[in-house]
Amino acid sequence: MTYRVIQWTTGVVAREAIAGIIGHPDLELVGAWVHSPDKDGRDVGELCGREPLGVTATRDAAALLALPADCVCHMPGRDWVEDPSRTLAGLLEILRAGKNVVNLWWPTLVYPRAESEEVYRRLQEACLEGGSSFCTVGMDPGYGTAGLALSALALSREVETVRMSQFMNNAHWEGPGITKFFGFGRPEVADTPMLQPGVTAGYHATTLHLLADALDVKIDEIVEDHRVIYADEAFDIASGHIPAGTISGVHYEVKAVAGGRDRIIVEHIERLREQDFAELEFKGDGYRAEVVGEPCVRLEMTLSSKPDFVGDGIAVASAMSVVNAIPRVCEAPPGVLSLFDLAPFPSRNSMIRRSGS
Results as ranks from 00 to 15, higher is better:
N170D: 10
S318M: 14
T58Y: 01
T246R: 05
S156N: 06
Y111S: 13
P307M: 09
A152M: 14
S338G: 06
L272A: 07
P295R: 05
W33A: 14
L337T: 06
I21A: 11
D83H: 05
H35W: 14
E270W: 11
C330S: 04
L27A: 08
I18P: 01
R353F: 07
R273I: 08
A212D: 00
Y203C: 02
G240P: 02
M75S: 03
D191F: 06
M1W: 03
L64N: 00
W33S: 12
A171L: 01
V159P: 09
E279N: 06
L95M: 08
V310F: 11
G11K: 08
L53I: 13
L47F: 07
G20T: 07
I264A: 06
P176W: 05
D70W: 05
V250S: 03
A66N: 10
V228I: 05
G177H: 07
A17P: 12
P25G: 03
P68F: 05
V199M: 03
N100D: 14
A66K: 13
E294I: 10
R353Y: 08
R59C: 10
R113I: 01
M320E: 10
S318P: 07
R298Q: 14
F277I: 07
T136M: 04
D60G: 00
G142K: 10
P344A: 09
Q166D: 15
R4P: 03
V102S: 03
G260R: 02
S347Y: 04
Q275A: 10
V297E: 04
E46P: 01
F167I: 05
E117S: 12
N349P: 00
